[in-house]
Write a protein that binds this DNA or RNA. Sequence first.
DNA 1: CGACTACTTGATGTTTATCAAAGCAAGTGG
DNA 2: CCACTTGCTTTGATAAACATCAAGTAGTCG
Lengths: 232, 232
Amino acid sequence: MASCETCVVRNRAICSALDAQEIGALNAIGRTRTLSAGEALIWEGDDSVLVANVIDGVLKLSTGTEDGREQIVGMVFSSDFIGRPFGATTGHGVTALTDATVCVFNRRDFDAFAREHPALEHKLLQRTLTELDRTRRWMLLLGRKSASEKVASFLLEMCERVAAPGCEHHVPAGEIRLDLPVSRQQIADVLGLTIETVSRQFTRLKGEGVIDLPSRREVVIRSHAALLAEAG
Amino acid sequence: MASCETCVVRNRAICSALDAQEIGALNAIGRTRTLSAGEALIWEGDDSVLVANVIDGVLKLSTGTEDGREQIVGMVFSSDFIGRPFGATTGHGVTALTDATVCVFNRRDFDAFAREHPALEHKLLQRTLTELDRTRRWMLLLGRKSASEKVASFLLEMCERVAAPGCEHHVPAGEIRLDLPVSRQQIADVLGLTIETVSRQFTRLKGEGVIDLPSRREVVIRSHAALLAEAG
DNA sequence: CGACTACTTGATGTTTATCAAAGCAAGTGG
DNA sequence: CCACTTGCTTTGATAAACATCAAGTAGTCG
């Protein structure tokens, strides 16, 4: 079993608030778990029994209506936190988009640990506030943007979070190659569109030379500026 | 100037985490401020210079695109917290929907105070987590629901937050009378619709006997069940 | 009373969803 | 190695939902 001392996200995850001894204590209540692409970690409406840190991979947070419509409400990446501490139920499901490794904790154990370590709670608060800001910005996209603006915004978001994770506002010059962690259907579920509309927007952008599509899961951004202009 | 000891939201706001002495210290760095309906407290993109507790009234959180489209990303009520602690900028504007009274703090003062009072940070974390859950549920509405589902969901949300604040899951029997704190345009901005579509849905629901509209800002819910069925 | 604002209603247009079919890459078994 | 299946994606035709444009109506406030 892996230990915190050697953890690759040790310095970026909320654990960075802790010293060596505290990390040891946290290590004692957590365990790593691997997930295959498509595998669920938490189901929507479940009792909140576990929380986790993402060590590697990408996962989606999603809710749906009874008749099967789905909305992806968030994507979590390496070093992000998952789950609902201090609460009874989880409002959304958590499913691996790629093969993933996570560090899971029993929620009650984690709650107790967090309450004894204000520095950890502070980190968690900062993260939650940032996530709330991001989520609210996404509401503008869902409520007010057109299909073309949505797709352009999505690609820009992927640039930041997949291609250049960490360094928030650095935009690499020239072409940017992305490996999408999501299918067309999942992109549609993020943007509140249908798969057909997403596909048509991709083909149009390719036709206009803004992007290239070497394969289904790859995108090359040929003109970051054009995407920015189109994102609204 | 009002003091915390006599504050009406004293036991529901995040201040409830503090004892009498701490309340005194917090009182020293805050001041009350009144806002008229329509008046802005924070502008989108502003440096995060202040945070606040809502004492009375309703305020909206909103973002917009450059070409003037607006999306309301949240509504805050009595005892709710406003602003972005521990961060440089505010991602959305805050504007009073009704006349309102808020208890404002310089953000840096508040940050420093919060860091010294883990119980306060804990309350704030709980609130932020709850708000994130609510916001994510709203994304399902924005991305996947039809106009009729959106309007029905909106009315149900108003039931919970205006008519029966606090007692989460109690649904009063019989008819429920609501005073909407928002105009038709603002409802449209919450739901990602146009004012005309909202108006048509209201008229239809009235025609079907599900609601009654005694005046522009009043709604009577005649059939809570029908709304639930329509909300999706 | 008259101007103003907010809302409603109607006619028309655009966008995006839906339905249907075909294309394409990757894998499977013969 | 090739035919065949399978799952995802693209493309096309059509329909529905909602937006837009344009009056018209009803409260509200001086």
